[in-house]
Design a protein around this nucleic acid. Sequence first.
DNA 1: TAGGCCATCTGGTCCT
DNA 2: AGGACCAGATGGCCTA
Length: 287
Amino acid sequence: MTDCRLSNFDLSYDDSCDSGYDLSFKSESTDYAEDKPDPFYEYDFPPMHPEKPQPNPELFEKFNAAFHSSLNELDRRGSDEIDIFYTLCNEEAKTSTPVKAQKTKKRYVTGRNRVSRCKSPSQILRIKRVRRLKANDRERNRMHMLNEALDRLRCVLPTFPEDTKLTKIETLRFAHNYIFALTQTLNDLDRYSAGPGDCVTVNVGNVIVSISKNGNSITAKNNSNAVVTSGSITNASFMQDYNYVTDKTDSYQQRQNDAVLSDSYGTTNFVNNNNYYCNSNVMYEYL
DNA sequence: TAGGCCATCTGGTCCT
DNA sequence: AGGACCAGATGGCCTA
């Protein structure tokens, strides 16, 4: 059984696009498992040790038939034992004395004259499994890249180290509003031709962004120092500033004033619906 | 302990 | 055919 085109059989693969993250199924081989020969394909048992006496042909044929019958039955039932069998074959191949099998037939032809042949159910399953593993790895890698991009986005948002990390959706919403607020602020600066000492401030979450022609600064509402590196604004503060909609009380008006530009030019004629609120100068859409 | 968030797997769809 | 993208399912971890 050590002759074995079975010996290459495993679920591993070597993917040049492998992410390198934790769950990788690497193979020592350079070939994908799906390209490996089918152990069920016309197993013709060439003489492995020509110098030794060959088995009784009749007994050998009986053994051959029984062997294939057992494998086919396992394969038909989709039994896990078939995988165990291949694993054992691999282990045996690793530990047994390597023996070069004589190739009596040239079965696999590469290039233009390659012979296509039907694949057994087990090989089809194996191919599907390998493709699934590769797809999983690509998907994992894709999500890791997406998360890295979100992390970079968090780093350029005004945040506090002591705050909890922004969730994905909070990061996107906060970034959206932050960019919008900064854009409006720049527009207002141009529109009103602020003097050298004039400053426009934007309340974003629990931080205040001050923008002037002399430079920008970010401070916390509680007078602590803000940073633009890591951490996040508090979720509660963020939601308070950006997600209220229907409350028309004084506190609502106050929060609106907090949430939009605190410039000295705009009016406070707020319009509100489920998607945005605005005054005459700015309109803040929240997601 | 329930709920929120996240990572991962998975199958489907679309595109090249 | 294979890769990218997407959404649903699932299980783990954390927190109130």
